[in-house]
Design a protein around this nucleic acid. Structure first.
Lengths: 143, 143
DNA sequence: CAAGGTGCTTGAGGTTGTCAACCTTTACGG
DNA sequence: CCGTAAAGGTTGACAACCTCAAGCACCTTG
């Protein structure tokens, strides 16, 4: 049973995140990416091949969905599919140089906190970070 | 120039919100709504008619987009369009009884904080709420 | 070797996003 | 007044993404 404070905090959480949505979309659009394409880039760490399934799990979406997204990343020369060695069903995805560069750009620009968060006092910002860090420790392994 | 703490807080913010996305979608799906349809319901306060433009602005999306969403709400008997009296170009949207009931359900269920937030200590939850409340005071009027 | 499971792709169908064009109605300048 | 511009809403074309159900190729196991 969450406290009333947690309930109110969640409402504010939601409000801040959705208010910032246009900015995030604008950043992606400027870089020529859709939102999900940018998310895929962020999940693909440079030099760390990732299977389609792992990417789908990380993005909390269907496997068949990732097929199309990676198709477009490949078409834009941002990533490449390689067949895995031990299992020919599996395909691993790797960022190209161009993909790594663009990933950095996404990270740099979308990682900027929105006005509401950036304008917090240093004390509030630090407290917020610490509380949220404790919050993510309450994640379970996803079933 | 945001502090490093603000930057890290934003990363955690993002992580928590996207990790909860499947739950939010599942709630809407159980109620027979798409995500945007549910958002529209939330913006339409019972007994408060709203114009298409106002709804589009509130949802941070294009005007033409809202047309389709409201079409589906009307088809599901959740809302109705009425012509405005003073200006025959304008149409106002009002929730039906069914729409008001479903809106309450969405609010009740999607308003529940996710595990990470709900599991915070009462002190952390209160502090989080207070910090976020200060954060939203930093909103500007949207240009 | 046959049967079943896994990894990825394909397909149909629906919702949302952008953008441009359109229609009606209102507002404004002469 | 009248003509032109602007505003509110809709429509259409097109791309992206979502779900779900099949399908195919490839393991894995009995």
């Amino acid at each position: 049973m969450p406290t009333s404070a947690a309930h109110e905090a969640w409402a504010l959480f939601w409000r801040i995140f959705t208010a910032d949505k246009p900015r995030r979309l604008a950043v992606m659009a400027e870089l020529g990416l859709s939102f999900q394409q940018a998310m895929a880039l962020m999940h693909l760490e440079p030099g760390e091949p990732m299977t389609m399934s792992a990417l789908a799990a990380g993005m909390h979406c269907d496997n068949s969905n990732v097929t199309g997204i990676v198709d477009r990343l490949e078409a834009a020369d941002l990533a490449r599919r390689h067949p895995a060695e031990h299992d020919r069903r599996v395909k691993t995805i790797v960022l190209t140089e161009k993909g790594e560069a663009l990933r950095g750009e996404v990270q740099r620009r979308a990682g900027q906190p929105p006005r509401e968060i950036a304008a917090l006092s240093p004390q509030d910002a630090a407290a917020l970070r610490d509380i949220l860090a404790r919050a993510v420790e309450h994640e379970y392994p996803t079933t």
